[in-house]
Design a protein around this nucleic acid. Structure first.
Length: 922
RNA sequence: GCGGGUGUGGCGUAAUUGGUAGCCGCGUUAGACUUAGGAUCUAAUGCUUUCGGGCGUGGGGGUUCGAGUCCCUUCAUCCGCACCA
């Protein structure tokens, strides 16, 4: 009987579906294991061969864990809100819900064809009101809580109000947006509006006017992680800075915990490093500089307080609120002109020329608290309003940016470190002995820094401060296809909907475009108001809202009373293995951790870190093929001969190229203009050029998994994707190599069936030691590989084992049965079929992963290389279990060796058990 | 500029973690069976050679009886961040 992947795979996929084979229960006496894939955004293009890479890896892990007796939660869902569906809707008028539904169906059917063991009954989609009810719920919770820095957790806002009534905020140590200190009396003297505004400044979800990344083309604001190089991540449109009233999440309150938590989780170093950089913790101090002839105290942040003796000027961001306060009348005009110029530049322009130094003197002077010197105050756009205090003390001798500024405007440069030459460039290194620094002279930089902070605090010039680069996340998007805010406005003030009114569903609109006056699309829904007639918030939530807690929802997807029940959460706890792309390193993976910590503080979840182990799968790149057209003709020249002509490189569809050999007939049919093409061949073939590029339609290098499944089968696709290389590495897809694993599966099948016969050819004979060794070595290897997720070497091991068994003509049940189980996680269909053929009524998922018998994991004889002075001379066959002394004695008896060491003395003998014997001779 | 990673045959990769470098697969070459092969099977396949051997893991140096693996240095390349004071 031939291996017929089509028949086998359709049969078993149907069987699994009809029997709910992979449905898991929240009640089990087996230990839990949670394997999660990053859920996809269902785009219109469908899956390409790169998407399933991580899914296959996690599926293998899940299936293995099931065979080891775990109750495995392995769900799949869809991150279904998003811009592409909305833009498609704008172009076609098709409702995004409709296209999203279509895309989801396509994705699901593609995924099912690959044979994943998902519990499809737990499927979630973020655009489902039953799902986003809990996204809205979480937002309301954040609105109703603040972050207490003393207890290091989120607490109800009511507690804070009680505290205000008693003591004002004098004793409050909480994350907030700049609220001055006020005692209880002041609180009681405030109007309701003033009180509300104070309270709002403490909420974890709050409204504020901030500088946002505004993308005019998309008509929406974007979060920092959605902007790359000054362009929107989706679409690549220019982004400008613009002040706007927005909802924000106080993610920054959790900066320290987000940083500390990294130490407790098993993620790759590079990913942790990316998160650390994004959080950007820096230690230093805030310092106040008096301004000459003014009451203003200029607050700056610095990580180098030790260099305070070298401050020769101050710089403020153009947007800084200090600017108006300190600018002198005679400089006012110039300063305003500078600010106007700076605000016109887009983010992109600002980044494009970081070398051009611009700035403007404000006319004001600050007083250095340590020296009493008067130092000019400038403004410049190299100082950012959003970081620190938006103002710096400039030390040109030891900061390259300050140095460039000082050179440009001819400001003095005072070196502070012995031996530092600052005539050409600044000395930025944080090492050396201080000089010109008054009380810090003679100290090492590090010691000076600490001494400086203490001195600053002692003299009351400022205080120690830790700053984070991590900003609060802007949470509003001026779009249609997202979660509506559960918010309405009454007298211009925001109110949360009562929880029992959730979910607040998206209204219908006549067009998905912003209104002509620039209002978000939701403002087109004229009747969209509360029962009392108050208008709802018209922006929607960003993409990361729905993906922040989806892993919790899988635990209890149908619960209408809670995001996740306590019981379900306590059973499943957290994600044991999370697999996904590295592109979410500073977006989703930060927000998700923040969201989880918040829910943890409120007692809704029992784990402070959601993803225990995280693995990034690499990208699968496309392998493009080229043909070479002789310029101005319709003649194509083969790769090896192209240098003899003046040619033009043209992408050619990889589907009509086989091992870089062009299918000439298919090429002529590919496009009408090539119908009359002529070819210059080499050795009768047309060889195409190739390059590794991103998989994309325009390069004709997209390989669709469906066509691979159709031709070779899902099991072959799965094995091949794993065989391609280490899971976390980027690698090109090359359909050429797939024959190897395809052959392997056919060979594997032939171990069970004779070529011509339809009956199973399996005997109950006792296996030989050699056969047992082949099996046990495989089981041991595969088991350790799976745990390390290095599946590519496992596939190699399978091939070696099957080749060996084929040579041995082994058809013994005692070998083939465990072999089938070991292969089952990788190739579920073929193994399921053979398991049935072997006479089992139950699916192979209920089988037990074989135990390794260590007795059979080493070779009975070992080939020992014998070396003199590290140079290998010859090899000897010796028993594998021989001890050191016996080996040594045996080798010394050898004639060949005796000849070699004649006249010399053995200084040392090194026996590496199981490896080699080395004699050091003189 | 800063941070992280990677460099091994024609190609994708492997190396029990310091112990015979190149497993497995692709490709290539030869052969068998075939009307045929894009099916199957067998063999060969790092480079070089005067067939003894010599060389070989980006380059240079070091530690060691022994280095792809450890250390120093240098080059190349990929990814992330980038006026973060």
């Amino acid at each position: 009987m031939e291996y017929n992947h089509r028949e086998i795979e359709t049969f078993w996929q149907k069987y699994w579906e009809e029997n709910s084979t992979y449905k898991v229960s929240n009640q089990s006496d087996r230990p839990k294991f949670y394997v999660l894939d990053m859920f996809p955004y269902p785009s219109g293009a469908g899956l390409h061969v790169g998407h399933p890479l991580g899914y296959i890896a996690s599926d293998i892990y899940s299936r293995y864990k099931r065979l080891k007796g775990f109750n495995v939660l392995h769900p799949m869902g869809y991150d279904a809100f998003g811009l592409p569906a909305e833009q498609y809707a704008i172009q076609t008028g098709q409702h995004p819900a409709v296209t999203t539904e279509q895309n989801i169906n396509r994705y699901r059917s593609q995924l099912k064809k690959i044979g994943f063991s998902y519990d499809w009954s737990r499927e979630v989609r973020t655009c489902d009101p039953k799902y986003y009810k809990w996204t809205q719920w979480a937002f309301i919770q954040m609105y109703n809580h603040y972050y207490n820095n003393d207890t290091q957790k989120a607490e109800p806002i009511e507690n804070l109000i009680k505290e205000f009534e008693q003591n004002g905020n004098t004793k409050v140590n909480a994350a907030h947006s700049d609220v001055p200190v006020f005692p209880a009396e002041v609180w009681h003297g405030m109007t309701e509006d003033e009180k509300d505004s104070v309270i709002d400044s403490y909420r974890l979800a709050y409204r504020a006017k901030t500088m946002v990344n505004w993308c005019p083309k998309l008509g929406t604001v974007l979060a920092n992680d959605e902007v790359k190089d000054g362009l929107s991540e989706r679409g690549g449109y220019p982004v400008v800075q613009k002040p706007m009233e927005q909802w924000l999440l106080r993610v920054s309150a959790y900066a320290e915990r987000l940083l500390k938590g990294l130490e407790t989780i098993d993620w790759s170093d590079s990913l942790k490093e990316m998160q650390r950089n994004w959080i950007g913790r820096s230690e230093g101090c805030e310092m106040y500089f008096d301004v000459k002839d003014s009451d203003v105290k200029l607050k700056i942040f610095t990580t180098r307080p030790d260099t305070v003796y070298g401050v020769t000027f101050m710089v403020m961001a153009p947007e800084s609120e200090y600017v108006d306060q300190v600018t002198t009348p005679d400089c006012k005009e110039a300063v305003e002109a500078y600010i106007a110029g700076a605000s016109k530049r887009t983010e992109l322009e600002r980044m494009a020329d970081t070398r051009t130094v611009t700035g403007q003197f404000t006319g004001a002077y600050a007083i250095n608290p340590f020296t009493g010197d008067e130092i000019p105050i400038w403004i410049s756009d190299y100082v950012l309003a959003g970081y620190g205090t938006g103002a710096i003390m400039a030390v040109p001798a030891h900061d390259s940016r300050d140095y460039a500024f000082a050179k440009n405007f001819n400001l003095p440069i005072i070196p502070l470190i012995e031996g530092a030459d600052v005539s050409q460039e600044s000395y930025d290194a944080k090492e050396g002995i201080m000089m010109n620094s008054g009380i810090f002279n003679g100290l090492e930089v590090k010691a000076a820094k600490e001494a400086a902070i203490q001195e600053v605090e002692k003299r009351g010039f400022g205080n120690r401060k830790i700053n984070y680069r991590l900003r609060d996340a802007i949470f509003s998007r001026q779009r249609y296809w997202g979660e509506p805010f559960p918010v309405y406005y009454k007298d211009g003030k925001a109110h949360m909907l009562p929880l029992e009114k959730l979910p607040l569903e998206l209204p219908e609109v006549d067009s998905f475009l912003p209104t002509e006056s620039g209002e978000p699309p939701l403002s087109r829904a004229k009747d969209w108001k509360t029962v009392d007639g108050y208008p709802y918030e018209t922006s929607t939530m960003p993409g990361f809202a729905g993906s922040s807690a989806y892993y919790l929802r899988y635990m209890d997807p149908d619960n209408n009373e809670a995001l996740v029940s306590k019981e379900a959460n306590e059973y499943w706890q957290d994600v044991d293995l999370y697999i996904g792309g590295t592109e979410h390193a500073v977006g989703h993976l930060i927000y998700s951790r923040f969201w989880d910590k918040f829910l943890f503080d409120l007692g809704y979840v029992c784990k402070e870190e959601p993803f225990k182990k995280l693995v990034n799968q690499g990208m699968i790149q496309g392998r493009s093929n080229f043909v070479y057209r002789i310029k101005g003709t319709n003649k194509f020249v083969s790769l090896g001969l192209k240098d003899q002509y003046d040619t033009q490189e043209i992408h050619v569809d990889v589907n009509i190229v086989n091992n870089d050999v062009l299918d000439l007939e298919a090429f002529k049919k590919w496009r009408p203009e090539f119908a009359t093409a002529e070819f210059v061949l080499e050795n009768g073939k047309y060889i195409c050029g190739w390059a590794i590029e991103k998989m994309s339609k325009s390069m004709f290098n997209v390989v669709n998994p469906d066509s691979i499944v159709e031709k070779y089968g899902a099991d072959t696709l799965r094995l091949y994707e794993m065989f391609l290389g280490p899971i976390n590495q980027s690698k090109p897809w090359d359909t050429g190599g797939i024959e190897g694993v395809s052959k392997f599966l056919k060979k594997f099948w032939r171990l069970f069936f004779n070529d011509k016969s339809d009956t199973l050819n399996v005997s109950d004979e006792q296996p030989t030691d050699q056969e047992l060794r082949a099996l046990n070595k495989l089981v041991k290897k595969v088991e350790s590989d799976i745990l390390a997720l290095s599946y590519n070497t496992s596939v190699s091991a399978f091939m070696v084992c099957v080749n060996e068994l084929q040579t041995l003509k082994c058809n013994k049940r005692a070998i083939l049965e465990p072999l089938t189980i070991v292969l089952a996680p990788f190739a579920p269909h073929i193994t399921e079929e053979l398991w049935k053929q072997l006479g089992h009524n139950e699916t192979i998922n209920n089988a037990k992963f074989p135990e390794v018998d260590e007795k059979y994991t080493v070779d009975s004889t070992k080939c020992y290389p014998v070396a003199l002075n590290g140079k290998t001379k010859f090899t000897l066959d010796l028993p594998a279990d021989a001890d050191k002394a016996a080996i040594e004695a045996e080798v010394l008896k050898n004639e060949k060796l005796q000849k070699l060491i004649e006249g010399k003395t053995i200084v040392k003998t090194i026996v590496v058990p199981g490896k080699m014997i080395n004699f050091v001779v003189k």
